[in-house]
Design a binder for these strands. Sequence first.
DNA 1: TCGCAAGCTTGACATTTATCAATCACTTCG
DNA 2: CGAAGTGATTGATAAATGTCAAGCTTGCGA
Lengths: 232, 232
Amino acid sequence: MPDSYYPEIRRLDLFAEMAEDQFAKLMRGSYIQNFPPQIDMITEGDPSDFLHILLSGSVELSSKWNNRETMMTTVRPVSTFILAASINDAPYLMSARTLEKSRIVLIPSRDIRAAFAADHGFARAIVTELAKRFRASVRCQKELKLRTSLERLANYLLRQQARQDGAQEFELQLEKRKLASFLGMTPENLSRAFKRLRAHGVTVNGSRIAITDQAALVDFAKPSPLIDDISI
Amino acid sequence: MPDSYYPEIRRLDLFAEMAEDQFAKLMRGSYIQNFPPQIDMITEGDPSDFLHILLSGSVELSSKWNNRETMMTTVRPVSTFILAASINDAPYLMSARTLEKSRIVLIPSRDIRAAFAADHGFARAIVTELAKRFRASVRCQKELKLRTSLERLANYLLRQQARQDGAQEFELQLEKRKLASFLGMTPENLSRAFKRLRAHGVTVNGSRIAITDQAALVDFAKPSPLIDDISI
DNA sequence: TCGCAAGCTTGACATTTATCAATCACTTCG
DNA sequence: CGAAGTGATTGATAAATGTCAAGCTTGCGA
């Protein structure tokens, strides 16, 4: 892999504390690949030979069962994915598909495990990262079990707003059909949910969302730090 | 904590590879407590000062939002819980309550983090454990999003059967109301679901389950290793 | 033994969500 | 420009799930 990508990757929490020589060694064994949009990169159930790092573009992780499919999460740069499978040398639990043209670094899982053994800063970073992701996953479960789809949408909008600097208006980062799948509902139901949120201060125009009555939306959504606050 | 408990704890994957002196040090700073049934030990949102190890009894982890409550999981001996919060020094995402009289070891989170830094075998065990739990959580999410409540129940029964050596008859390990909450449904709905499973080879008598037509149940439940197989 | 409490079940009904079909809006491309 | 395709919306309907109230078991203690 060309050295020019090193700094970008180095900036990730996962690699920030790693010793220089270890990092260089890890990078030397890695590949960089460019994928066009809508390419299936990973199929759930396959063995996990590489840790993936998304440098640019976007990737969705999804799962299937019995002819049904659901989007689990979207990955945005710069971020790793499939860390847990890679660490435990276990099969992927989710499939990955590019949404846009994407540049992706592939680090052999074997090298990751070796670096973990050799570099304590890296080991600590992996633990922190894994613990964070585990907690994110628990939050998702809580949301699915405790909230209706309308409440999930309302809280999703508040989270998106916060991510986009709290602006009153912002763009959805996902196609609506993908958003519906992510929230665990059908596109039709999402469409109706948007309509129902008008009564709680939300105006929709295509992919543009305006929160016209913040207080009303918050009052309805009842966001909780223990579900919605990604920083803890 | 009395030395007599050491071997039991030592047998956990988490501590198996730890150096003897590190392990002894960790244990010296720990407490052991006995809790009666139905005691709230941990409230979600509180800071996580201890890693907990359940030696005997059983504990349920649950979460609340907006006056609704759901059971997330039950912990059975010997097993740790709240590892991720403890590692990341973050607030608990779930509450813990004893189901039965329980004996629990409390290890200060600070000591866990110190041991992690000092003992590489322990660090590796923590990563393996966290990755395993993360994957279990992802599987739960997949199940919630991809399966109806009837399908979740059918697969739950197959998993329980496998855990109890594949016997044709076995006992539910949970009160039905708790099972309903765990599966993300109401007790009434669970009751009706059991009835509907009669058509797929399941007979229920109180908490005793008999799978009278294994093939029919499997055909309906369509268990998948990527959701149901806890060993990968 | 009786009676009560807790959990479970059942029925009737309401709400939520999904499905199917049709239409609309918008983009792409010949 | 106009046709075709894709995604979004809408309406009608069905299925899944929740709610409420009542009745049913069961086990325990007075």
